[in-house]
Amino acid sequence: MSEEWGSKKLGLPEDGRYDSGLAESVQSLQEESVLTFHVAPEERSPKSDSASRPLYGDQFCEVPDPERIDSSYESVSLTESLPQTCLPPSGAPGTGSQDSEQPDSLMYLSEDGDTLLHLSVIHSIPQLSLYLISLVPKDVLDIQNDLYQSALHLAVYLAQVEVVEALLQKDINMELQDRKGDTALHLACEKEHLDCAKILLRGPRGPQNLQLQNWKGLSCLHVATLKRNPALVSLLLESGADINSQEGTSGKTPLHLAVEMLDRSLLLHLLQHRPTVDAFMYNGCTPLHLAVGRKDAGLARLLCQAGADILQRNREGTPQKTWQRATTSSLPFSPLMI
Rank of each mutant, 00 (worst) to 15 (best):
R17S: 14
G21M: 03
Q27K: 14
S45D: 09
P46E: 07
K47P: 00
D49H: 08
G57D: 05
D65V: 10
E74R: 14
E74F: 15
S77A: 10
P89T: 09
S90D: 13
T95Q: 14
G96S: 08
Q102L: 13
D104I: 10
L106P: 06
S110Y: 04
D112F: 15
L117P: 10
H118G: 04
H118S: 04
S124K: 15
P126Q: 08
Y131W: 15
D139H: 15
D139L: 11
D142A: 10
Q144K: 13
D146W: 07
L147I: 08
Q160K: 13
E162H: 14
V164Q: 09
A166P: 09
I172W: 08
L176R: 07
G181S: 05
D195C: 04
P204D: 10
W215S: 14
V223K: 06
R228M: 06
A231Y: 05
L237E: 01
L237S: 03
S239A: 13
G251D: 05
H256E: 03
L262R: 05
S265R: 13
L267M: 05
A279M: 02
Y282F: 15
G284N: 04
G298P: 00
L299N: 04
A308I: 00
A308Y: 00
N314Y: 00
R315L: 07
E316H: 11
T327E: 06
T328S: 14
M337Y: 05
